[in-house]
Design a protein around this nucleic acid. Structure first.
Length: 482
RNA sequence: GCCUCGGUAGCUCAAUUGGCAGAGCAGUUGACUCUUAAUCAAUUGGUUGAAGGUUCAAGUCCUUCCCGGGGCACCA
């Protein structure tokens, strides 16, 4: 991003020249009556159209010239002729730069090669681009520029634009689905005195007037449960969480989470909800329940079948299936050795249940491509869920894994305030995080039994849109400032 | 934080063993009134991420740093 180079100087000189002619390309207003795609779709030979957009290509024929104009809906070819525009305007037109915005008026016609085009009668320059766009054929490949200057990526790489338009539809359809089921959308604090609902490292900020620190939320959970106490029986929030952790293909420091709670439901209610919701989104946005991921050459690398019903399997059974039927009969030391021999990295300080969890996360989860509800996790992993009636060492939860990733955890929510206090206190261990007394007081007022779930929207988009990196489904992923 | 790969013209990429930094697109000029990666002719454009070092000579080798990709660690 040099401040000057010859290309920028030339464009500035063109701007100066236009102004010398009394044309200010940044002052014009133009009200297009047609979108580019609409002009093509409603083709009538000779119909007058007003379109506006960015000049993305030009083909100079001497006394006539073709340009491509592009708006959000697509591309439209404009044909300019010297004998129609007149010498002076045609010269201005001929010196338009790639990237300039123009408004164009003319009549629709079809070229002899069959392309619907506009025979230009007049035009105005709506904005002059003072910097050159990326190259037209190869697009923009530099990942750093693609992420830092996403607008260039959106201009140069149509498939990238398509991904973000699809993401918008996915979010839209999730809201549609939940609204149709009677859920109420709410907004809860992002700045929290005690960051609860998960065990991630938070970001800290300072409030000057109150003279205290706040944490950016790491989860939505505890505030949404307060609303269950308050009588909002079906609530959801879709919003940003912030976790002060490493970045990776699967992690961005700020990411979008959907959490939904349904009073009088349980984890099985949530299974149905997630299965139906993701099915609805896939069907409406993609038109299919069979998702194919492809490599750059178009080869299918992975197929995900979202057709219900999705597989359900207990955590322990899945571990036995993959790590040996005798896994839970081994001594803790033997489990540790088995885990290492299977290829898991086991830190010395891991407790026994963490050894099993490492095997699950590193060796099993990545293989769960088709949707799988992994139920009944060990209680140590999840302090906010109810114990299973038939196995009190486990909780009534599931982790919905798709595409080798955790997509959505869900619980039968713990609503026993005494039990909840003990579990949180035990987990806090006096240091990791403070107890959210205000939340525990809310539970003591009585929270209806409920099912709750969280859904990582970014990871859902990766799965549905075939993207390998979370950065490719977030418009402006986090990068180190230059 | 650690390991690893990368950074060359506005963009996409070359540059052999350490031996004159190049091409395509974009730009500029010229030709062409149905082109569409238009075509044809000519032409401009470089602090090779930054700073040091080795060498007669460094894009290339060495050191440090910056930024990015991938992996690891962290991550109920």
């Amino acid at each position: 991003m040099d401040e000057t180079n010859t290309l920028i100087e030339q464009r500035r000189a063109k701007l100066t020249a236009l102004r010398a002619k009394g044309l200010d390309p940044f002052r014009s207003k133009f009200s297009p009556k047609d979108a580019c795609a609409g002009a093509r779709a409603n083709y009538v030979e000779g119909r007058e159209v007003w379109v506006a957009g960015r000049v993305t290509a030009h083909r100079d024929m001497g006394k006539s010239m073709f340009i491509d104009v592009r708006d959000q809906t697509g591309r439209l070819q404009v044909y300019a002729q010297k004998n129609v525009l007149g010498e002076e305007k045609f010269e201005i037109f001929r010196h338009l730069d790639l990237g300039d915005f123009i408004g164009a008026t003319g009549s629709l016609f079809t070229t002899k090669t069959g392309e619907i085009s506009v025979r230009l009668t007049s035009f105005v320059i709506l904005a002059k681009a003072l910097r050159p766009p990326p190259e037209k054929w190869h697009g923009l490949a530099d990942t750093e520029i693609r992420y830092r200057q996403r607008y260039l990526d959106l201009i140069a790489n149509p498939e990238v634009k398509e991904i973000f338009l699809k993401r918008s539809q996915i979010v839209w359809e999730i809201r549609n689905f939940l609204h149709d089921r009677g859920f109420v959308e709410v907004e809860t604090p992002m700045m929290q005195a005690i960051p609860g609902g998960a065990a991630a490292a938070p970001f800290v900020t300072h409030h000057n007037a109150l003279g205290c620190n706040f944490y950016l939320r790491i989860a939505l959970e505890l505030y949404l449960k307060r609303l269950l106490v308050g009588g909002l029986d079906k609530v959801f929030e879709m919003g940003r969480n912030f976790r002060n952790e490493g970045l990776s293909r699967k992690h961005n420091p700020e990411f979008t989470m959907l959490e939904a709670y349904q009073a009088y439901g349980d984890y099985e209610t949530m299974m149905e909800l997630i299965q139906s919701m993701i099915g609805h989104v896939a069907q409406t946005v993609l038109g299919t329940l069979v998702i194919e991921h492809k490599d750059p050459t178009g080869q299918v690398t992975r197929t995900i079948d979202l057709t219900p019903p999705w597989r359900r399997i207990k955590y322990k059974d899945l571990v036995r299936e993959r790590a040996g039927a005798d896994w839970f009969d081994l001594t803790p030391q033997a489990r540790r050795e088995r885990a290492v021999s299977l290829g898991a990295e086991i830190a010395k300080e891991y407790e026994d249940f963490e050894v099993t969890q490492a095997v699950f996360e590193k060796l099993i989860e990545p293989t769960l491509i088709n949707p799988t509800f992994v139920t009944h996790a060990p209680k140590q992993l999840i302090p906010l869920a109810k114990l299973s009636a038939d196995d009190p060492e486990t909780v009534e939860v599931f982790e919905c894994c798709i595409n080798g990733q955790e997509i959505a955890p869900a619980y039968t929510e713990q609503n026993d305030p005494i039990e909840q206090r003990e579990r949180l206190a035990h987990q806090a261990g006096g240091e990791k995080q403070k107890l959210d007394e205000d939340f525990l007081v809310a539970l003591e007022h009585g929270m209806p039994p409920a099912g709750g779930m969280g859904l990582g929207i970014d990871r859902l988009c990766m799965m549905l849109l075939g993207q390998e990196s979370i950065r490719d489904v977030i418009l402006f992923p986090q990068l180190k400032p230059r």
